[in-house]
Amino acid sequence: MIDKRHLAAAAALGALALALGLTGCSASADASDAAGASGTDATTATSAADLGGMDALVAAAEAEGELNVIALPDTWANYGKIIDAFEAEYDITVNSDSPDVSSAEEITAAQNLAGQDGAPDVFDLGSAVALANTDQFAPYKVTTWDDIADDHKDADGTWVYDYTGLMSVGYDADAVPEPSSLDDLLGDDYKGKIAINGDPTQAGAAAAAVQWAALQDGGSADDVQPGVDFFGQLADAGNFLPTDPTPATIASGETPVVFDWSYNNLAAAADAGGRDWKTAVLPGTALASYYNQAINVDAPHPAAARLWQEFIMGDTAQNLYLAAGAYPVRLAAMVEAGTVDQDALDAVGEQPEDTVQLTSEQTEAASALLAQSWAAAIG
């Protein structure tokens, strides 16, 4: 997602690695601890009101004492500071495991660990994976629900957008020239140097790289085949690097060019091991893509999971997204209410006028195409 400081900001990764087992985490609270003042079990609460209000939700969550999160790198959209702020606000310990796994691996972890204390309580997912796994989510509507546009949330509360950014190209300016178009990336200067953030059939950021290439190369939100074809051309030219980028691979020079969200690029520039890491948001159509918040239907800490959603959709966390270069879903409402971090907003700047956000139907169609054609395209 994106974010981008003005038009171009640093670059990088967010990475997508391996692992799958959420470690440790601690024992979940007794079912009675999850019940609020109303006597409603938090596992069935679809709003704070169901538990007797926010004070009752906070009390139930603090009685549980822990929250399990997954796939939240500290440098991704400011999640390190967001977690710190949540722990500072509430008497709850956040267990952050497997920070570099993909959206698809988040769901797999929840399924493999169902019924265990270490299962994830909440998810942060790319849209394709979220839309394909709604049965894994518990419906919940935060108190700021009305601030969020109808097309940015599920009507039943199973998922809600949280932040977005712009797809960009991060690059080591000492290793390669600045790209000004996709065609530039097919040149010899980029031989064996171009990586994307994971497998586009599983990872939202990687899928978005292909979608953006389609928008830049004659395709559309309804036709991402040109994006698949472009990466096939990159592979044929020997320029595509089948390595998942991480801060370490950027700092070592192993992945000198990375397609990723601009907020990740910004974080990578600050931790690039002295490399001159920059970001280009290419001229033409830009791509934005929201990530989705959802609660695990089998959350071992159901009250803490719901409190996390309230916190994520509150002004503190939304402004922390913005400070990292990501556009929060409640941005318009916060601007109107005067609660936005204006300095952060001024630094990020406006989204390009020609910005595309795929609809749920377009995302599903693009996901199906990638599942069918990606492996063959890149060999």
Rank of each mutant, 00 (worst) to 15 (best):
T246R: 13
A203F: 02
A10W: 05
D354L: 02
L16H: 06
V122M: 09
L166F: 08
Y263V: 12
G198D: 07
Y190P: 09
D97F: 03
L320P: 00
T246Y: 05
E361A: 15
Q211C: 10
P73K: 14
S289E: 11
I82L: 03
K81T: 08
P283F: 06
D260T: 10
A365N: 13
Q211R: 15
L125R: 08
S127I: 12
N112P: 00
A269I: 00
G227W: 00
Y163G: 14
R330Q: 15
D354F: 02
V228W: 01
E178W: 08
G187V: 10
D189P: 01
A366N: 14
T201S: 15
D124T: 09
P300A: 09
A332H: 05
G126C: 10
I92L: 13
K278N: 08
Y327C: 06
P256C: 04
A128L: 11
D117E: 08
S98M: 06
E353Y: 00
I378Y: 02
A56F: 00
N68I: 02
T359G: 13
A344S: 01
L22N: 02
D223C: 11
A294E: 01
D147F: 03
D154K: 12
D217C: 10
F86L: 12
Y263C: 14
Y79M: 09
I312A: 04
T143R: 15
A294Y: 01
D172K: 14
S96G: 07
D217F: 05
G253A: 13
A37C: 04
A85F: 09
W261P: 00
G52P: 06
W261L: 12
I194N: 02
A9N: 09
D222T: 12
V176M: 05
A27R: 15
F137E: 10
L234Q: 02
A71R: 00
F86M: 11
A61S: 09
A366F: 02
G170H: 10
G80P: 01
A34H: 11
A77T: 13
G157Q: 04
V129G: 04
T316A: 11
V329K: 05
T316Y: 00
D146T: 00
I295A: 12
N112S: 13
A288W: 01
S103W: 04
